[in-house]
């Protein structure tokens, strides 16, 4: 039965329902419980933003705090996955990938291929990304594109509470390593979520809005910004089709190409830095496989090629906004006129 819950509660519910279903699912991370070994209460935090709160009370030792040792933590999750468990490991901020990346891209991602198809590594790495919290350059990045580059990894970016629950359940049931990217500014957003368990297959883009004039491909939080821009543009008679790929690996190329075939115009919105990004990846996809459909140059709305600034005045400029999306859409819509 559908009811409205928060994105972060959808994630918690997915973990809860899956842990209840399957004893081999364990949750591990820094302060995912909070309070281990201390004199006060256990489950003091339930994750730095409270996303895993309450699971300790239900599942005890199947949710465990880790020392701040991302390499050992992520490597242990990978090793446990290769030996029969289904760990959901929390890498608190995606920015911390730098201190554990080897265990992800050299180990987890490659086991199956290197070992001739004999390994199965069903690990989920949940990680929070994105700017907007005045958290500065080392706690605000959008590095999903780096994971997307690596064969063997699947990369998931839910943009709504419904998608967060269904994609996380799919991630947990999936037998391949999955990087599950949660935008920190989406945790408090609300949406319809069924109480029952459900899994959304990977590689199935969501057509968030139908329109015939301009295709907007947007990721994560940018889906909401694109929707806002599309509302404004609709009032001026420009109908945008918004496509949320949901997963960047696998990527639903067909849905993007079919949409551009219909609209002839493409705006890609990606909160990441612009070079070697999902924006360039999707632009190149359409340039290569949908060149004949295009009636205007592809527009990209991204962050600039800078680190994420701290000052609110600068950070607000840094993040792609509905206004920037609107202006990119107008530019492509007006092309040739």
């Amino acid at each position: 039965m559908a009811r409205k819950i928060l994105y972060q509660d959808a994630i918690n519910e997915a973990l809860d329902q899956e842990m209840a279903r399957d004893d081999s699912i364990i949750v591990m991370g820094e302060d995912v419980v909070g309070g281990t070994g201390a004199n006060g209460e256990m489950d003091a935090w339930g994750g730095v933003l409270g996303v895993t709160k309450g699971l300790y009370g239900k599942y005890g030792d199947r949710i465990m705090d880790s020392p701040i040792s991302e390499s050992a933590l992520v490597g242990a999750a990978v090793g446990a996955a290769a030996t029969g468990m289904r760990p959901v490991c929390e890498l608190m901020f995606i920015d911390f990938m730098g201190v554990c990346f080897d265990q992800i891209y050299n180990q987890a991602a490659k086991f199956r291929y290197m070992f001739g198809g004999k390994a199965k590594t069903p690990v989920v790495i949940r990680t929070m990304y994105g700017a907007g919290f005045r958290a500065a350059a080392q706690h605000s990045q959008c590095l999903y594109n780096i994971f997307t580059h690596v064969p063997g990894l699947k990369v998931v970016m839910p943009s709504s509470p419904y998608d967060a629950k269904g994609l996380l359940i799919q991630a947990i049931r999936d037998d391949d390593p999955v990087i599950f990217c949660e935008h920190k500014a989406l945790y408090a957003t609300e949406g319809d979520v069924p109480e029952e368990s459900y899994a959304i297959p990977f590689g199935e883009a969501n057509i968030v809005r139908e329109g015939d004039d301009v295709t907007i491909v947007a990721l994560g939080r940018m889906v909401r910004f694109a929707a806002k821009a599309a509302d404004t543009l609709a009032a001026d008679g420009i109908d945008c089709e918004i496509i949320d790929p949901r997963t960047t690996s696998p990527l639903d190329e067909d849905t993007i190409l079919e949409s551009v075939e219909n609209t002839g115009r493409l705006v890609v919105v990606d909160e990441a830095n612009p070079r070697c990004s999902m924006a360039t990846d999707i632009a190149s996809l359409v340039a290569q496989k949908g060149f004949g459909y295009l009636q205007a140059p592809i527009e990209m709305v991204t962050a600039p090629h800078t680190p994420v600034p701290f000052s609110g005045a600068l950070e607000d400029l840094y993040i792609p906004s509905p206004e920037k999306i609107e202006s990119a859409v107008r530019k492509t819509a007006d092309y040739g006129n």
């Binding site: 490597g75 446990a80 029969g84 468990m85 180990q107």
Partner: peptide, 30 residues
């Protein structure tokens, strides 16, 4: 590698193995 006999892989990365055995040991413990 041959996980069927408990061999988790030779490894091209120096220091790659110790985190992985923590995971295998965690599985064993649980």
């Amino acid at each position: 590698a041959d996980l069927d006999v408990g061999m988790m892989g030779a490894n091209g990365i120096v220091g790659g193995g110790p985190p992985l055995v923590c995971g295998a040991a965690l599985s064993a413990k649980l």
